[in-house]
Computed example of a mutant assay.
Amino acid sequence: GPVLQPQAPRERARMNQIVAMLDNYAYGPMVWDVYVQRVEPPEGQRPDEARIADGLEKARRVLTALSDLVGDRLWLASETPSLADFHAAPIFDLFQQAPDGAAMLAQFPSLFAWWETISARPSVVAALT
């Protein structure tokens, strides 16, 4: 299987940085504020539009930072898939299920291309279904 920990120190540091960014800045807004509110609001409740708007604003900031960090690489941290890619996949999967999330992701061409690539991998398809 693939080596999920890059060997090069700079790539390994970038992978760790991206995982930390996802945990601290992406998961809450992209999953709880956008996906849960838009796609699966608590039973009997309407989506909280203010929370969605705040989540989208925070998601835009983290997607901008991530896009700048990734540049035109196919994978997030290195030239091959790493833990960063597989950590990001479920967050992006939920985010893009919300129409507002999908529309925002489409505004980041490199991240959109990454999502199209990773979401087609058989292991990711199996994990996300």
Rank of each mutant, 00 (worst) to 15 (best):
D72R: 06
E40C: 15
E11K: 07
G44I: 02
S110I: 03
F95K: 14
A106W: 07
D54T: 08
T117W: 07
Y25W: 00
W75C: 01
P47F: 01
G55N: 11
A103D: 14
Q96N: 09
T64D: 14
W114C: 04
N16W: 12
P81T: 05
W32P: 02
E43K: 07
A89M: 13
G55I: 10
A103Q: 15
E11P: 11
L69A: 13
M15L: 11
L56M: 11
T64K: 09
Q107L: 03
A126P: 01
S123D: 13
W32I: 09
Q17Y: 10
G71W: 12
P6C: 13
Q96R: 06
V31I: 01
D93N: 14
S110N: 15
G55D: 13
V39F: 01
S110R: 15
V39W: 04
I52H: 07
P109N: 14
L56S: 01
Q97E: 10
I18N: 01
D33E: 05
R46L: 10
Y35V: 03
L105Q: 12
F112N: 14
I91W: 02
S82V: 02
L4K: 03
Q37I: 07
F92W: 00
V3H: 15
Y27H: 09
L111Q: 01
Q45S: 04
R60V: 07
L83K: 05
D93M: 09
L83Y: 06
V70S: 14
G101E: 14
A50G: 10
R121D: 11
S119E: 06
A103P: 05
A8K: 02
V70A: 09
L4F: 05
L4A: 11
S119T: 12
R51N: 04
L94G: 09
A89H: 08
T80M: 13
I91S: 01
P90I: 02
R61G: 10
L128W: 13
T117S: 12
F112K: 15
L56P: 01
T129G: 08
E43N: 05
Q45P: 09
E40Y: 13
G55P: 15
Q45W: 06
R61H: 08
K58E: 06
T117R: 14
L63W: 13
P29F: 09
L83H: 10
Q17D: 03
F86W: 05
V34G: 00
Y35R: 09
E11A: 00
T129I: 06
L94R: 13
R51T: 07
D54A: 07
P47W: 02
A8F: 02
S82Y: 05
I18A: 13
T64Y: 08
Q96F: 11
S67R: 04
E49V: 12
Y27G: 00
D33V: 12
G28M: 00
E79H: 06
R61Y: 10
Q97P: 03
P41G: 08
A13C: 07
A59F: 02
Q7A: 03
Q96V: 06
L83E: 03
D100M: 05
P42F: 00
